[in-house]
Design a protein around this nucleic acid. Structure first.
Lengths: 154, 154
DNA sequence: ATATAAAGTTAAGCCTGCTTAACTAAAAAG
DNA sequence: CTTTTTAGTTAAGCAGGCTTAACTTTATAT
């Protein structure tokens, strides 16, 4: 097995396990909060990409502005999102997480982290160090990739 | 910074980036196939956990048997799932992916892999080897964890 | 053999998300 | 200054997911 193939295999095996775990985890968490997946996803987007206008929500999830408006409206009424007028462009709105919304996402994160904490317990000190270093490299590379122009919009 | 904390930081940073990417990716992919998230999730469960009965679907997503039945029904009609009588217990049904359903999930996987392929290009050969080894350790640990009795059902 | 439990299905009804269409208000273009 | 474009909202209507309730069929218990 070439090194090339080995890398590919290793990362795909890890992705498979990890994606499945985290998807299920988030799904269950969203359900436990009483939010629908679309609602929850909007909170996630605001958490990761920061405050934005309605248009970015509708683009982000490929839904009409009308749908985005209605979706956001419920989250505003639930006190999870703030919707204020953009002082620069008064047509636009600025959407951001409230403390409550932010806390909710954070709580979801903690539950997701719990799994890898258990995982960590299965590892020796040396293994932890090696993994830590490896992941830092990947994270760094991923951040670089994030900044580049997107060739394959996924 | 202690090694303990360093590991935790490294893995959380990686999780953050990776979870967000893959969640968005799967969401968009599901949408592109015309399937709803619940429908898509059922396919995912069958892919990862293998064939099962209706009851496991309803337990897995914490929905009523009625809901599961209706959900599965649409997937059967779309030709993505096979629903046959369980020969051992004729009350039960055996659900499994058809080739079409299996191929659809596979296609989604490929798209998810594409991102890490780009990531790989940013790495040196030595980095790839180190990462490959580290991920193998994690995958192995995760598989062990999977087999143990679940303490924190997530 | 009869009673009970378990696995699924079907139907009615509710809620949500989404779309289209018609609209308001503000910014940009001419 | 008028026209057009952009950002977002509101309302009507459809489709999907979910629940409860009533039901069928098969397995298990007594």
């Amino acid at each position: 097995m070439t090194k090339q193939v080995q890398f590919t295999n290793s990362i795909r095996a890890w992705m498979d396990i990890f994606m499945h775990r985290s998807m299920r985890g988030w799904g269950r968490f969203a359900k436990s909060t009483g939010l629908s997946m679309p609602q929850f996803s909007v909170l996630m987007q605001l958490h990761y990409r920061g405050a934005c206008g309605m248009s970015r929500i509708s683009e982000g999830y490929d839904i009409t502005p009308a749908a985005a408006s209605q979706l956001v409206d419920k989250l505003v009424q639930s006190g999870l999102i703030q919707r204020v007028e953009d002082p620069v462009d008064r047509r636009a709105k600025l959407l951001s997480l409230t403390d409550k919304g932010s806390g909710l996402i954070q709580q979801g994160m903690e539950e997701r982290y719990r799994w890898v904490d258990e995982l960590e317990e299965k590892l020796s000190v040396e293994e932890r160090i090696r993994i830590s270093e490896a992941l830092d490299i990947m994270t760094h590379a991923a951040q670089e990739l994030e900044l580049e122009p997107v060739h394959h919009p996924v």
